[in-house]
Design a protein around this nucleic acid. Sequence first.
RNA 1: GGAGACGUGGCCGAGUGGUCGAAGGCGCUCCCCUGCUAAGGGAGUAUACCCCAAAAGGGUAUCGAGGGUUCGAAUCCCUUCGUCUCCGCCA
Length: 426
Amino acid sequence: MFDLKLIRENPDGFDAGLARRGLGPRAAEILAFDEQARKFTHSLNELQARRNASSKEIGQAKAKGDEDRFNALRAEVETIKQEIPAEEEGRERAMSAVNDILSGVPNIPDDDVPAGEDEDANVEIRRWGEPAKLDGAKEHFDLGEALGQMDFETAVKMSGSRFVLLKGQLARLERALASFMLDLHTNEFGYTECQPPLLVKDETLYGTGQLPKFAEDQFVTTADLTLIPTAEVSLTNIVREEILSAEALPLRFTAWTPCFRSEAGSAGRDTRGMIRLHQFSKVELVSITTPDQSNAEHERMTECAEEILKRLELPYRTMVLCTGDMGFSARKTYDIEVWLPGQDRYREISSCSNCGDFQARRMNTRFRGEGEKHTSFVNTLNGSGLAVGRTLVALLENYQQPDGSIAVPAVLQPYMGGAEKIEALT
RNA sequence: GGAGACGUGGCCGAGUGGUCGAAGGCGCUCCCCUGCUAAGGGAGUAUACCCCAAAAGGGUAUCGAGGGUUCGAAUCCCUUCGUCUCCGCCA
């Protein structure tokens, strides 16, 4: 969502920003409706002022027992009242026209975001670890199925495609990874652990930008509540409609939750294995900051996510997404891609975005500096720290042994009951 | 799920049709007084939008939300959301 004042002041700048997203200009159209709305608001305010003034006089006239004056004023108010609905409707129409356009417009990219159409234009900014070139490296689903602990068939039986049933040590590995991640983020990086609702209202999804544009990507229940596609939704909306004090910022929240995505439009992509599921678990990071802190917080958050991979000794590279590959609400996004020997390529395992005040405007989340009279919108950031399912995939592929077992990285062993490797069920 | 009560400013709380954006208290800010401390006095203290070059000033809306009645609604009616109490059920 955008500041209408800024669009008024600099319509060309707004359109230029849209152009970087590959979108056509909208400023002229928006401002035309905006001007209409303002005109209606103005005349409506004047009518209401006259009505209010006369109504007050009516009270006084009645108190004095001045019947003629009383009746004259009543007639006057009556005519004013007849004019009001038309103004209200006009304003409503114009305002919702502005809103309809604005709520479907994505965030404007930061100046330093590289231009480009798709993921091929993303720019690598750093790389950590040595990508393993294993002879005969297997993909995670072959490894998991051979271990007898990653069961797609049974999942299909009960839920259909894009689900998985983990069992035994792989089920535990999922839990171990999540615990490890949460411990790091809470103990070392100052995030507050949360257990948020997984079902949310439409307004909540609107706040973070999933609605109105991406309704098809969500699983909606019969109770009109929607399963969260990411804990970003719940964690960011913690501050919805709040006015925070600047001293309280930054706020940092983390949560391990299941995420539900319909994956509409990705038919045929990553159909095998655990890469793209309707349900997966993720440890999410969310920060609420002042505008001047948000860029630094973005770097920090990305490093928090990277630190997980370092400690698990999984090679990765960090990319800046180009203008064409960024999500709807993001102003700038870093993707962290982990090395998968089985696929012989890097795959996204985390996405860290600075949304600026885009979501804050939708949520109406503001802060007030000390001694300040006026409020400003906060900035919001979110990142995966990390996608747990994909981390499990990376672990299997990078730690696979010739005998089909999986070595357990040292930092994870305490979370695995001391196990040093994962072996087939006997 | 059944019965009842309630939702007012940062907090508490008054207000049952007009002069109420809202008494009073607490908290907070500023000033004054007081030889520390304690106490006391005064002023200020919601959000958004609009008018105004700006300030001053003014206007509109908001008393959970939405709608209605009325010349006029925090106050009456309807719907809805939420909270509390009792009962039932339940992890």
